[in-house]
């Protein structure tokens, strides 16, 4: 046990559910109409994860695969401490940073201002943001668009800028949720390189992706989530082979 790398994230029997405000309860009898009117808008509970356990260690890149709605993104959000556990716990040695498709940027503002805002939101000081600014803009590689409001960006350009901002801070734990899917080939290559760098700095990277090829190339280990449960956890080749088998 002692020769294994240090654990960075421990997920222990994690259950997560969301409160959703929605209708959807049919009236069974006409006489219950009145009661229906009052209970209609009750908050409903949607269970997203129902008991997941695993240990992630230093220097690991872990792929997370599964069907749409299986709970992949919820798992990352829970590890990032954004969605509280209903039962069970997540232990992590530093603040994990989530890089999602819809990150925290203001569309009305220019890319420049968003770089500053994003850096500060990640907990950098204004000096650190200034120091990193050129690096971020170079990495995003969106040219003069950096001066235009983000609402004028294409999906791919927005994703590039967000990834560049998030990857600028050195994270011990980086969670990437489909953020690479929209970039072009060149950007995907560079971001995979950045993920490898982060991993070499003894960090841990989680990568949610529907592109099994990307997962296979970037991650040695893969978690297969199915209907909120951990279906399989092991070397990427084996897990992906089993997953392919099941969707056939």
């Amino acid at each position: 046990m002692s020769d294994e790398p240090r654990p960075t994230v421990i997920v222990d029997d994690l259950h997560v559910s969301y409160t959703v405000y929605a209708t959807g309860r049919p009236a069974r009898e006409a006489t219950k109409l009145l009661r229906r009117a009052t209970s209609m808008r009750r908050a409903r509970e949607v269970v997203a994860l129902r008991g997941i356990s695993f240990v992630a260690r230093e220097g690991e890149a872990i792929g997370v695969i599964g069907r749409n709605g299986s709970g992949k993104s919820t798992l990352l959000r829970a590890i990032a401490g954004l969605t509280p556990a209903k039962q069970g716990a997540v232990y992590a040695d530093s603040d994990p940073t989530l890089l999602g498709v819809n990150a925290a940027l203001i569309n009305e503002l220019s890319g420049e201002r968003n770089v500053v805002l994003g850096g500060l939101a990640l907990g950098m000081t204004p000096e650190q943001v200034r120091a990193k600014y050129d690096e971020i803009v170079d990495f995003a590689g969106i040219g003069e668009f950096i001066e235009l409001p983000m609402r004028t960006y294409s999906a791919g350009m927005g994703a590039r800028l967000r990834f560049a901002i998030a990857a600028s801070a050195t994270h011990r734990i980086l969670l990437v949720d489909e953020a690479l899917a929209v970039g072009d080939a060149d950007f995907q290559r560079r971001s995979e390189q950045r993920i490898n760098e982060l991993r070499d700095e003894a960090g841990t990277v989680f990568l949610v992706s529907h592109s099994l090829k990307v997962v296979q190339e970037t991650c040695q280990r893969t978690l297969w989530i199915d209907a909120g449960l951990l279906r399989m956890d092991g070397p990427s080749d084996e897990v992906i082979a089993a997953y392919n088998e099941s969707v056939k």
């Binding site: 240090r6 654990p7 960075t8 994230v9 421990i10 997920v11 222990d12 029997d13 356990s53 695993f54 240990v55 829970a78 590890i79 401490g81 509280p84 556990a85 716990a89 997540v90 232990y91 992590a92 040695d93 994990p96 951990l230 956890d233």
Partner: peptide, 20 residues
């Protein structure tokens, strides 16, 4: 998957704080 007790002990041994 390891048991609940093992995981909690592992977290305690490595000083990993609980999130959330």
């Amino acid at each position: 998957p390891p048991s609940h007790a093992e995981l909690a002990a592992l977290a305690a041994r490595h000083n990993l704080p609980k999130l959330g």
